[in-house]
Design a protein around this nucleic acid. Structure first.
Lengths: 232, 232
DNA sequence: TTCATATTTCGATGATAATCGAAATAATTA
DNA sequence: TAATTATTTCGATTATCATCGAAATATGAA
């Protein structure tokens, strides 16, 4: 009898507009300060705090405090995948753009660089890498195999440069997907940039969404054996 | 895209506890009468009617009228998928005792259909009755054969008393998904009560769940040739 | 220390929506 | 026919909940 209320609690998180907005922002995989989330969702900080507390309580969102800031992020990969299926394509609500936020100047932590691939594509590509033996899944991270080194280099990604970057990740930019077996971080970022360079994907201006081009569809299929055609 | 829209609609319906309860019941794939759903969700029939109307309106639940009954059910597996994904990330149910844990497990096994046996047990027993020639299957109801009269009497069920009750004697409780109706009505109710009397099954307090006892397992097997052991 | 910033807690408000009693509708049974 | 049962509709009440102002807490900066 109590089992159903459990489902109801999770459902209420995605069906309420403000919470849906917050979760949609958090789906970029980063940790965001409460004030930024409030702004983007178009609600006052108190209200955001109220919602965030609920989400933390439901084990959907994790919080990590640094100084007077509290950074909120999606709890786990599993949660992210579920939320994405409900929120990713048709967000029911308006989210204020980051540009707007910056202009507003109220937020100086608004640095949401969309630095890695999320969503179906990100997962699909990671899976593909694993299958092809380009990366290995360890407890905390992915490691690159010898085959992987060869491949990524031939794909014009400078691994040495990335290793340096990786160390420079600041604690402010915690990313659940780094802790989880999901390709993100420096390599994920590099891949994203490379894909953009190749015109395989386009970043849509006001949203965090990306669009896969015709070239991209072809490329992902041929090189990564990942079918991203819209028919699915 | 259609999928996501539907998912969002389903999510908003699930977000209310009573509706979540109703949908949880409907997950068994059967069509249930409104009154039963009300009872199981712990709400009055009016309230259930209110919720069911909403869900029918949203094309999440289908309704089929038979006489004065209206049977509600879900035909798309999408609802099940949504519920499943929610429950997959929902915090685990806090189990207070080992007893409760076992009872929870038993819920899946068989449920009372308001006041008669449904679920696997109900269908199995009805099938057994048919095989043994104790009842005949008509269009809307079951009828009792001569052999049946003898058997039920020997099973301590007073058939004459049942006939006097102002309710259908042995109507079929539709089970469209399986195309296997089970025995309901006064006879179904009487059987349920007799099984409880024999301690073959136990009705769990707040839920409509029943638990099959060790005695029951033995009895169902010996007398009805119905194997209800947990291995299946 | 004092002031500003980030966030939460408290309390009140308002809107939405769930709930239920009472009555209506309809089918079934005696 | 009348009584019973299943369900819905209506109307009123109540509960829930998102929202935000005000104040509290905590941290960092001047």
């Amino acid at each position: 009898m109590k089992t159903n209320t459990n489902a109801a609690i999770i459902a209420s998180l995605v069906s309420e507009a403000s919470r849906a907005a917050i979760l949609t922002v958090l789906l970029d995989g980063r940790y965001h300060p409460a004030s930024e989330l409030a702004y983007m969702a178009g609600i006052k900080p108190q209200t955001a705090s109220f919602h965030l507390a609920k989400m933390v309580d439901a084990n959907v969102v994790a919080v990590s405090q640094h100084g007077r800031h509290r950074y909120y992020g999606i709890q786990s990969q599993e949660v992210a995948q579920v939320m994405e299926s409900f929120l990713s394509i048709a967000p029911p609500i308006k989210i204020k753009s980051l540009k707007q936020a910056k202009e507003d100047k109220a937020i100086r932590y608004a640095r949401t660089c969309y630095d890695h691939l999320a969503g179906n594509l990100g997962v699909a590509i990671t899976t593909s890498f694993l299958h092809k033996g380009l990366i290995d899944e360890k407890k905390e991270i992915f490691t690159i195999t010898e085959d992987g080194k060869e491949f990524f280099t031939s794909f014009q990604i400078d691994l040495e440069k990335l290793k340096k970057k990786r160390r420079s990740f600041s604690h402010k930019c915690l990313d659940w997907s780094e802790r989880r077996p999901h390709l993100a971080g420096a390599l994920g970022n590099a891949l994203l940039e490379r894909f953009i360079e190749l015109h395989w994907i386009q970043q849509l201006p006001k949203t965090r969404a990306i669009k896969i081009t015709a070239e991209g569809e072809k490329g992902f299929k041929e090189i990564f054996a990942v079918d991203m055609s819209h028919s699915s």
